[in-house]
């Protein structure tokens, strides 16, 4: 067995086990930490697949942004020290059944479906190539989604400013 394979299985185990613990634990702060470690495992998988840029962005966005956001909202809105109530047995069973059923169906489909063999030519996956593709308007360009996301971001920023300005309503 090659070292790479061992690393892959370790990363996969980290991702899946911590994801399962994130949805299973009853302490909300621990849940956030497990979620973060699962996301870092995914970043590790990206590194394993040699998509360094995607991995770094994954860590920046999730560890630096979303995990901190979630942890702050846990601190500010929840009683982070208390255990969450266990869900009713029936709901747990139903959810687990639905998830397992869906998983089984998807796996059946996956195993049955033959994927095309990879094309020989490997495309340049460097950061500058991704950047060019983001602004390209051609066949595999992403200018339209990029602009739509920019619009979304602008709307979010304006919304933030509006909410922040509404804090003092009765001042002239």
């Amino acid at each position: 067995m090659k070292g790479e394979t061992i690393v892959f299985y370790l990363l996969a185990a980290l991702t899946l086990v911590s994801a399962a613990m994130a949805v299973g634990t009853r302490r909300i702060f621990r849940s956030a930490v497990y979620l973060l470690s699962s996301l870092i495992g995914i970043a590790g998988l990206y590194f394993w697949m040699r998509f360094e840029f995607a991995a770094a962005v994954q860590i920046v966005v999730y560890a630096g942004g979303i995990a901190v956001l979630i942890i702050f909202s846990v601190f500010l809105t929840q009683r982070a020290g208390d255990d969450m109530p266990t869900p009713p047995m029936l709901r747990t069973i139903a959810a687990a059944g639905a998830a397992l059923l869906g998983m089984g169906l998807v796996m059946l489909q996956l195993v049955a479906h033959p994927f095309p063999t990879p094309a020989v030519a490997e495309v340049d996956r460097s950061v500058s190539a991704i950047g060019r593709r983001m602004l390209a308007t051609g066949d595999d360009g992403f200018a339209l989604p990029f602009e739509v996301v920019s619009l979304l971001l602008l709307a979010a920023m304006i919304g933030c400013i509006v909410i922040a300005m509404r804090a003092k309503p009765n001042q002239p």
Binding site: A19, A20, V23, A99, L100, V106
Partner: peptide, 9 residues
């Protein structure tokens, strides 16, 4: 897929 269905659960 496993992550997806863990998320669903």
């Amino acid at each position: 897929a496993a992550l997806f269905f863990i998320g669903i659960y």
